[in-house]
Design a protein around this nucleic acid. Structure first.
Lengths: 133, 133
DNA sequence: CGTTCCGTTTACGTTAACGTCAGCTTTGCT
DNA sequence: AGCAAAGCTGACGTTAACGTAAACGGAACG
């Protein structure tokens, strides 16, 4: 059967991060690799979490924010109170992300406009040069 | 006629930043307020740039990246070479932003799924409690 | 005319997210 | 047995993006 855990190096290669980063995330309680003697063994759960961590980072969330969000992905535990709070947090982040998406669309539109204008300028310059030459 | 420049405090109120931030951006050559004696006066151009800076930050670009991108928004100067380079840079950023948008859409979808699942759990808990009470 | 703001410069402090280095086991070859 | 590679634990260094404090200048007000 396929080994269900990965060494730190395998993780680094798979996710393109350094060992330091993985240890750092463990220290910050974002990952919980099990120990075989001294060595860390990363489970499927760790891999799922790391994937979400890296994604979160790309969207500008802090590690602390991400840590809280990750609770959403193993909601199976925790009592009602905690569950509800986590859910609220998720709602906020969802709103955040949708706002971000909307703004991103605007920004993309504007950038495209600018680029069209820039392309025009460049073409004009090219023509001018050709003619002048 | 409406005064075309703003003091540092007016800027802070308008954009919700601190004076320190504006001076910092000036030091980093992101803004170029004119001077009336000692005091800074921010022009319409500065306001447009600041708006773009803050937007860029929300998308996770560094100030240095933003500074380079800002050149795109006053492309009127600079010769062909520089123009082309700036254009290339813009293309990269555009690709970046579109990739970010795509990923964001996936992430939003997944988060929604998780939240639906979480809502289900919460409801079950609520029902269980009601019955048990 | 004193003081209270607003603004300025200079400079050191801070936080997040790692990088880097030293020194120590453990493990796999040979 | 010997030794290099891989991992581990501190612990200090680094960068970006400001925060914060000290010390000063002009102007507006009672």
């Amino acid at each position: 059967m396929t080994m269900n855990t990965m060494t730190i190096r395998e993780m680094c290669d798979a996710f393109d991060v350094t060992p330091r980063t993985l240890r750092f995330y463990e220290a910050k309680e974002l990952l919980f690799p099990i120990r075989e003697g001294q060595k860390r063994l990363f489970t499927k759960r760790d891999r799922a979490r790391l994937k979400l961590i890296l994604r979160g980072k790309r969207f500008g969330f802090s590690l602390e924010e991400i840590r809280q969000l990750l609770d959403l992905y193993h909601m199976d535990n925790g009592r009602e109170e905690q569950l509800a709070k986590t859910y609220e947090l998720a709602e906020k982040h969802l709103a955040d992300m949708e706002a971000q998406k909307a703004e991103l669309e605007v920004a993309i539109g504007e950038l495209k406009e600018q680029m069209a204008w820039g392309a025009q300028r460049i073409e004009e310059l090219a023509n001018g040069k050709t003619v002048a030459a």
